[in-house]
């Protein structure tokens, strides 16, 4: 036996006896036995998991474990708990008039947070994550409102939608002046020049002059004689710096020729009244609320 032993010269430690590449040896530094026992204890412990947690698949099901634990059940419970924790605020919100939510900082904070979450899930698809909108989809951050920017205006729009088919929907129709032959191309060009001149955009002055008469005759009934629009009818203000469908001459010509009429779904069937209320508060808070 003694001849089997080999000791490393530098450290004086016995080697394992294995030799690689002719001279490479491994020092034998045995682990303590308790370390091994800890490993065995961990294995025994882990077997306990089979017993208490879901572990083995069966033909049609799986072993449920002694604790009958399920992550799905746990998360359902957590969601229910979170809802229960929100109840206090939701009840208070349902009892608070919309205009008074802002007077209670705690309630306001809850409504803003809840509104933001609801917005992200339901509204962001069209209006964008930051409510910045896009061509044809209004930017909700700005101070220009087609159907009104007061809290109750916003709440109504969210609840019943715009041209949504809901009985109480906001509705109006802009005529297709070009397509339906009400105005010829020359008149449309003139009135487009006039409309652009209203907001200080570069326009052909002569054409705009001719367009003024066309405007008074065809457009002023909804958009107002001064072009400042009418929120009752969802007729946009044409004198400001915000253009939902673009402010280029060709954009305005298209709008007049084909008419415009965005559609927004009614949310009262999909969202509960408190969520709509929170959304209204949130949208109003984005900066343009009146």
């Amino acid at each position: 036996m003694a001849s089997d032993k080999h000791f490393d010269e530098v450290t004086g430690t016995e080697t394992t006896g294995h030799v690689w590449d002719g001279d490479l040896r491994e020092l034998n530094k045995p682990l303590p036995k308790w370390w091994l026992y800890v490993l065995y204890a961990c294995i025994v412990w882990s077997i306990g998991y089979w017993a208490v947690y879901p572990a083995w698949p069966t033909m049609s099901d799986y072993t449920k474990g002694y604790w009958n634990y399920s992550q799905r059940a746990a998360v359902t419970q957590e969601v229910a708990d979170a809802k229960a924790a929100q109840d206090k605020y939701r009840v208070a919100l349902s009892q608070t008039p919309l205009a008074d939510v802002g007077k209670n900082p705690e309630l306001l904070q809850f409504a803003l947070a809840g509104g933001q979450a609801t917005f992200g899930e339901n509204c962001a698809a069209c209006h964008g994550r930051g409510a910045q909108g896009g061509v044809g989809y209004p930017n909700l951050n700005d101070d220009d409102w087609i159907w009104g920017g007061q809290l109750d205006n916003i709440q109504q729009t969210i609840s019943y939608g715009i041209r949504s088919g809901h009985a109480k929907t906001r509705d109006s129709a802009m005529p297709r002046f070009g397509l339906d032959g009400a105005l010829d191309a020359a008149k449309i060009g003139d009135v487009a020049n006039y409309v652009r001149s209203l907001s200080g955009l570069e326009a052909d002055k002569t054409a705009a002059g001719r367009g003024a008469a066309v405007f008074a005759e065809n457009c002023a009934v909804c958009h107002g004689a001064d072009g400042k629009g009418n929120q009752e009818l969802g007729a946009p203000n044409l004198t400001d710096g915000i253009w939902l469908y673009g402010n280029g001459q060709e954009n305005v010509v298209t709008s007049i020729s084909t008419g415009r009429g965005g559609i927004m779904p009614a949310w009262d069937a999909r969202l509960d009244p408190v969520s709509v209320k929170m959304l209204a508060v949130y949208v109003h808070s984005l900066g343009g609320g009146k």
Binding site: F7, E14, L31, P32, K33
Partner: peptide, 21 residues
């Protein structure tokens, strides 16, 4: 102990994977 450096001490069974404390 460094076995080979301690004169007169038997180096023990050797080649153990695990050692008793």
């Amino acid at each position: 102990r460094k076995k080979s450096l301690t004169p007169g001490v038997d180096a023990g069974p050797g080649k153990m994977a695990y050692a008793s404390r």
